[in-house]
Amino acid sequence: MHPAAASTLAPDWLHRTWEATVLAALPRAVYLHAGAWTDVLCILDADALRLPNSVLVPSVGIGRGEPLALGLRAGDRVKVDAGRIDLPSGVVECRRTFRPAAIALGVGLGIDPTALGELAQRLKPGLPGMTAAAHEVVAAASEVAATSEVATEDMAGAAGVIAAEDKAATAGELELRRLIGELVGCGPGLTPTGDDVLAGVLLGLRAAGLVRAAAALADAIAARLRKTTSLSAALLQAAAGGWCIPEVRDACFSLRAGNPDDSFALLSRIGHSSGHDLATGFLAVLPQNPQLGAHTHLHPGALLAEAINLTTHTNERTLHV
């Protein structure tokens, strides 16, 4: 039996009695899927990248214990019962909840543009044209935010917006959707390059405190989640809420501390090109904001004048064993 920690973003069915399907059986992880398109649960061992929609099993890792995926193939069915997951390699039992890494609102304020520029130069996105595409998306999302009458003030609600129905679209919204349409699902990987770039933009907008733009973008992406893999859709949804993997959060902190080299090292650890794709999206936001820069002394509250009240307890579920 393996004690495990469940993320607050784990799908609801983890806590009920359910049967899930194995999406992937990987050396360091098992991905399960059940229910909605985006309800993916990643069971990760000690050495896997810490995806936000996950259950962590620290007692299994390199040189320790049988791999979680032992005896599993994609398509197998796995029983889940109130936090207990029955894997052939052993039962995984959730004992604790944790909140995944997140990009804090406004954390991008005040990053020295030189550091941003240095990092941007070294990035190698998975497909050509991503940098330009990211900038277009940022511009379109900002425009929608500026002109839209429906201001989303509740950041937590942005994640909820993803489930919202299509409203009658303005021209700006249509343009944004068109751009998104060319990115979601674009690229061969499990998390296609286009998706990673969009996730990066979502996180970048949050880092810059541009909540309305982030909400507009999330809205446009929501309509297209079916056009990409379940895993990537789940990660996009998480990114809309500011949730990410620790390497991305730490890369952001390294930028703040003026260490683009550390940032680069962290981002390069992520997948084949995912880290670079994420960063491409992220960086497309920051230098563009004229109010940001090394010399700004703006009170963060000024940018958050859209009255954000961070209610971090909504949508959380604390495990009570």
Partner: peptide
């Protein structure tokens, strides 16, 4: 291939 998920690094190697 239904449900054949491979992480991106592996996929690159295969390609």
């Amino acid at each position: 291939r239904s449900g054949a998920y491979f992480d991106s690094v592996s996929l690159m190697q295969v390609s």
